[in-house]
Amino acid sequence: MFWASYLLAAMAVILAWPVPVLLARAKWTARAPVTALVLWQAIALAGGLSMIGAMLTWGLEPLGENLLAGLQGLADLLVSYTPAPGLDLIHVFALSAALLLGVHLVFTLLLTYYRIRKQRNKHRDLLNLLSSPVKNSPKTLVISHPAPVAYCLPGGGGSVTVLSEGLLELLRPEELEAVLNHERAHLNQRHDLLLWAFAAWRSALPWLPTSQLAQRAVNELIEMLADDGALRTANRETLIRAVAVVASGERPSGVGAPAKELLTPEESEALSTAHRLHRLLSPSPPLGKPAQALVLACSALLLAVPTVLLLAPGLAG
């Protein structure tokens, strides 16, 4: 396992810096958001597995030729209390570091879930006091607020979509329906689970710049997916107008004009910096199936390589 630990360490470094940076800058992700999300998840899982695996294989190297044999050797060592040849302080330190990092990641994941769940329950209690359900739609709540606001609050069977009175006053019926479908797509596709996982990654490794890149990229991608969900029933012009109204907080002039003409130059410049709106205003063809298959294959390979390095008997000496 000696060389396996070095290969895992190298893979951890590659997945912690250059790969996420390049992916965050890639243009193709907007053309295949589902495929891009799979790749981001593979990078996160393979990166964590490589970090822990590198330290674990280094620490267990004197005890076995692979992870399972090394763990068996460690268990025998702990039961018999007999010293193992070659197991020195450096190996013990590596094993301790791997254990601490693994516990830290799992604990942060659970703690993040607890915090999110607590915030949602508190928010839901406030909504019960300050909101009223929409007629014939009990899972859509309206709050008394002049600003245009729309968001969803996940919670399994208790999931709700929240709208503000300011939004209802600004949007036309077809635009409101597009916004509702966007929020429903978030709930139906369980985007909250992705946000939870990447928020936990950022909390666990705040010193890692790419954890911030990943969270930002994932946020953008799920918004694109929700837009795609809304576009199944709403036309593109309607959705763009709805997004423009929510972003600017006012109804643009030019009723019935094309969506691009409804934006002032200042609004257009500001909105063009957002990948989501740029994608709506200037749609590109979906990424080809061969390219998507290649990305998915790379995602599978990212997970397979550290697994093989950990489990293959005698690999890399």
Rank of each mutant, 00 (worst) to 15 (best):
T112F: 01
T112P: 03
Y114V: 06
Y114F: 04
Y114N: 01
R115G: 12
I116K: 03
I116E: 04
I116S: 10
R117C: 00
R117M: 00
K118G: 05
R120D: 06
R120Q: 11
H123K: 04
H123Q: 15
R124E: 08
R124W: 09
D125N: 08
L126H: 13
L127S: 03
L127P: 06
N128S: 03
L130S: 12
L130E: 07
S131Y: 04
S131C: 12
S131Q: 09
S132I: 14
P133H: 03
K135F: 02
P138K: 04
P138V: 04
L141N: 06
V142H: 01
V142A: 03
I143F: 03
S144Q: 08
S144D: 13
A147N: 02
A150N: 11
A150S: 12
Y151S: 12
C152V: 14
L153T: 13
P154M: 12
G155R: 09
G156K: 08
G157E: 15
G157I: 15
G158D: 13
G158E: 11
S159F: 07
S164Q: 09
G166P: 10
L167M: 12
L168C: 00
L168P: 01
R172T: 12
P173Q: 06
E175G: 12
E175P: 05
L176E: 15
V179L: 08
V179D: 07
L180D: 09
N181C: 04
N181V: 01
N181Q: 14
H182G: 07
E183I: 03
E183Q: 04
R184H: 07
A185L: 00
H186K: 00
H186Q: 01
L187R: 06
N188E: 12
N188V: 10
N188P: 00
N188A: 13
Q189S: 06
R190K: 15
D192I: 14
L193V: 04
